[in-house]
């Protein structure tokens, strides 16, 4: 299990390959990558703030929960902070389980929890100003299914 919170970009291919190379029993591996979305085409940058210390603790607790619930062989979460550009990779999740259903479910669980329980805040910077991204009710509602 690994949790990394970093400013630097990550190499999706290299991370996926290294994660796969460490597996001994799994029959399924799922990876998800979140990108900086540019809804209207006016986004110049996204600034991601986080709470050092709590971020790592909160994500580690989610990963432990996922590993227990879906009998994961391994799980990885990388989440960036700082200034990112449109289409940059923000974060990735990788899960490995005996069967794909568990790997998919665990990855979705981690994504849902990262959205509203990991202390990150996004600010969108555009030519006409900047705004904090508001949390969505559906993100909170998404937690109820787990």
């Amino acid at each position: 299990m690994a949790v990394r919170v970093q400013a630097e970009p990550f190499d999706l291919g290299a991370e996926s390959t290294a994660f796969a190379a460490g597996l001994r029993r799994a029959g399924a591996m799922v990876t998800f990558t979140g990108l900086v979305r540019d809804n209207g085409g006016a986004l110049q940058a996204m600034e991601i703030e986080h709470y050092p210390g709590m971020t790592e603790r909160a994500i580690a607790a989610m990963v432990d929960e996922a590993v227990t619930r879906w009998s994961l062989e391994d799980a990885l979460v990388i989440h960036r902070y700082g200034r990112l550009g449109p289409q940059d990779q923000i974060m990735m999740v990788a899960t490995a389980a005996p069967h794909r259903g568990d790997a998919f479910a665990a990855a979705e669980f981690l994504m849902d929890y990262l959205k509203s329980r990991a202390p990150f805040w996004k600010k969108e910077l555009a030519a006409d100003g900047s705004a904090w991204v508001a949390a969505k009710d559906e993100d909170e509602a998404a937690l109820k299914r787990w």
């Binding site: 979140g34 709470y51 210390g53 709590m54 603790r57 909160a58 989440h79 923000i90 974060m91 994504m111 990262l114 959205k115 509203s116 329980r117 990991a118 202390p119 990150f120 805040w121 996004k122 904090w132 991204v133 508001a134 949390a135 909170e140």
Partner: peptide
């Protein structure tokens, strides 16, 4: 560094953080 309620007691607490709802992922 653990989420809490506004009604929670502060006894023994060293660090309090206030922030908007989180927007990770």
């Amino acid at each position: 560094q653990d989420l809490a309620e506004f009604s929670a007691p502060l006894a023994g607490v060293r660090e309090v953080a206030f922030f908007p709802p989180m927007t990770g992922g």
